[in-house]
Structures are given as structure tokens and as C-alpha cells.
């Protein structure tokens, strides 16, 4: 499965596409389970890039385990949480983080 991710133009914040908007956490990302869904997300990403909302737009591979989204690559897991050496930084440091 794939989800759509990018960095927000204004501040570089890592974001994921979720239900019509970009979210700051990965949890509610819209999942693409087939080629058509991937293409739909790609189109959304390209439009958002063209509209100068986000940069570095990518589809990434994920698994869903017990309802939670897990990126396959460590790189993407680090983007979703924050630096592994400092849990006081990044998404993992936010009050609502799991």
C-alpha cells in the first residue's frame, strides 16, 4: 500500500495527505491499495506542488498493522516520528503523539 507525503513549503514540515488536506501526522493518511488510487494521489500531489503548498512530493510504501500505518523504509519512519536520538524533537515530541 502507498500513501502520499511531502514537506510544506512555508516551513518544511513533513506532511501526509489525509482526507482532502495535508496532515502533520501520518496516522490518518489516505491509503492507496491499487494503481488507480495511487494515480489519484499522484495527481493530488502534483496539483498541490503546482499550487505551491508543498514540495518534495512522494508516494511511499506502507503496511497497516492493527490499524496503524507503518512506513516500510526507516527513512519514512524517522520522518513520521522525528530524530531517533532525540524524542523531544519532531512529531513524537508533540502532546498528542502516541
Amino acid at each position: 500500500m502507498k500513501i502520499l507525503t511531502a514537506n510544506r513549503l512555508t516551513d518544511g514540515e513533513a506532511v501526509w495527505y489525509a482526507g482532502g488536506a495535508w496532515a502533520e501526522t501520518i496516522d490518518s493518511s489516505e491509503l492507496a491499495a491499487d494503481k488507480a488510487a495511487e494515480e489519484r494521489l499522484e495527481t493530488i500531489g502534483a496539483a498541490s506542488f503546482a499550487a505551491n503548498e508543498v514540495v518534495d512530493v512522494n508516494l511511499i510504501d506502507v503496511d497497516v498493522v492493527d490499524g496503524a500505518i507503518h512506513p516500510l523504509r526507516l527513512r519514512e519512519r524517522i520522518r513520521a516520528a522525528g530524530p531517533t536520538n532525540r524524542n523531544d524533537l519532531g512529531k513524537q515530541a508533540r502532546p498528542n503523539a502516541a
Binding site: N7, D11, G12, E13, A14, V55, D56, R75, I78, R79, G82, P83, L89, G90
Partner: peptide, 14 residues
């Protein structure tokens, strides 16, 4: 232009 001024895009932010 941003690179000429030292601004990169990394994983979490610029």
C-alpha cells in the same frame, strides 16, 4: 536560489 543561500530541505524541515 535557496541552495546558493545555504537552505536545504531535509527530512523534517529546512
Amino acid at each position: 536560489l535557496r541552495l546558493m543561500n545555504g537552505v536545504y530541505l531535509q527530512l523534517h524541515a529546512y
